[in-house]
Nucleic acid binder design. Structure first.
Lengths: 230, 230
DNA sequence: TCAAAAGTGTTCGCTATACACCCATGG
DNA sequence: CCATGGGTGTATAGCGAACACTTTTGA
């Protein structure tokens, strides 16, 4: 029998961190899911997550989960909600502090158990384990909200990208369509893009300008408070 | 010696809910603080909060805390962040799921321990216990963010209010000044206010129109998605 | 030569903003 | 009568939105 060596006067819940990992493949917004190998919900897909260690903050725990699944250490990561329904885990009381991360799919290395990890387009996500359907809904909603205040979208693109790629990303996140000229004008007027010496010829099309995100001018602007309008 | 009757294989943190209670007195945005009667931080001010019971969700716990301090059961309440630094409580590892509530100060009844509860204007809040300074900063920031998407301000006003009161509220939350005519026009154009048969003569001034928030038309608008611009 | 994507500028309507005078009340 | 706050409308500038044709490339 296992040893129960931690004792408390009152019952304590377990605390886990889960990490919704968003990626963008140029057309679709995707999330990385793990197939559960054990009960409960064996065979169902779920977000990577695990118990919080006693000497790490929730953020550190979420980063650890992210690293274990993707090999990434410096991705953008953001806490969005804590899930606490008493019966959300059939085994015991579990509180989950949920984060989402924004990563570049191309930089993701298979994790410890790569075989069970898979990218799913947002609209093709199957029914998930536990209350992870709800977690995904809230993550998506918060991502949409946040993109109005911070240019987090750049975390999902390569460091150099075309205006069309950027537009597709915003369209995928917000589920809208933009006019190419208006989108480009608006983005450039924001002053947070730097146009590079032009290059790149995509598959078999006309050559397109490359841009990079300009963090310095963004940070300057942020001082005075501003809004990204879409 | 106290009995430690709950046993776990791994260490578990304690989980609490804290509730930042915002009120508006017509001029200033205020928060309700409790003076701590015991160590640690005895004599310092802190947000009401307490341990989460094993059969309640964090939301239920936060509502319970709110009820105990204010007698209110139906106030607006919103989870905004979970605080988890390993050393944030000197006694033991404590995870705090933090909420803020918006209440009408006039409806607040003294709680179980009214003597130790007091309203503080946001810019007069003393140095708080634990990491509650940080909790307050994040609560305020999230409140400002949220007011761009939802007309939560009405939760802080009486059910009937003048345009000036509403303007003062928005100015207090966002720390800005608006032109009276522009503010009024913008608000009315939103279509979520209903003007009442005019009345109210304030202390010794000209009579002012009264308005009420129109939840029906707000809900209609929300279906199609919209933004409150300020 | 055809299909697919990229580059480019103008017009129009709306909204944000700035702004000033008169009125009612109570002291 | 004076101080305080309330009600009200207009003019301007900037932004958002709609919109089409030409160019390049690879198949």
């Amino acid at each position: 029998m296992e040893e129960l060596k931690y004792h408390y006067k009152y019952p304590h819940p377990s605390v886990t961190t889960d990490c919704v990992i968003f990626g963008f493949d140029g057309t679709l917004l995707k999330v990385l899911l793990i197939e559960r190998g054990v009960e409960p919900f064996k065979g169902r897909w779920a977000f990577p997550g695990g118990f919080l260690k006693m000497d790490e903050s929730a953020l550190q725990g979420a980063k650890r989960e992210l690293y274990e699944e993707t090999g990434l250490k410096d991705a953008y990561i953001h806490q969005f909600h804590t899930f606490s329904a008493p019966d959300r885990d059939p085994r015991e009381r579990v509180i989950t502090i949920a984060y989402y991360a924004l990563v570049r799919i191309s930089e993701v290395k298979g994790g410890d158990d790569a075989a069970q990890a898979q990218w799913f387009p947002l609209d093709k996500v199957p029914s998930l384990a536990f209350d992870h359907d709800k977690i995904l809904r809230e993550a998506t909603q918060e991502l949409r909200r946040q993109i109005h205040f911070e240019p987090i979208g750049f975390e999902l693109l390569p460091s150099q990208f075309t205006m069309t790629q950027l537009q597709h990303l915003y369209e995928a996140i917000l589920s809208v369509k933009f006019d190419r000229r208006n989108f480009s004008n608006k983005m450039l007027k924001l002053g947070i893009l730097t146009q590079l010496e032009k290059t790149i010829t995509l598959p078999n099309k006309k050559e397109a300008f490359l841009y990079k995100f300009n963090a310095e001018s963004y940070n300057e602007m942020k001082e005075k408070g501003f809004r990204l309008e879409f």
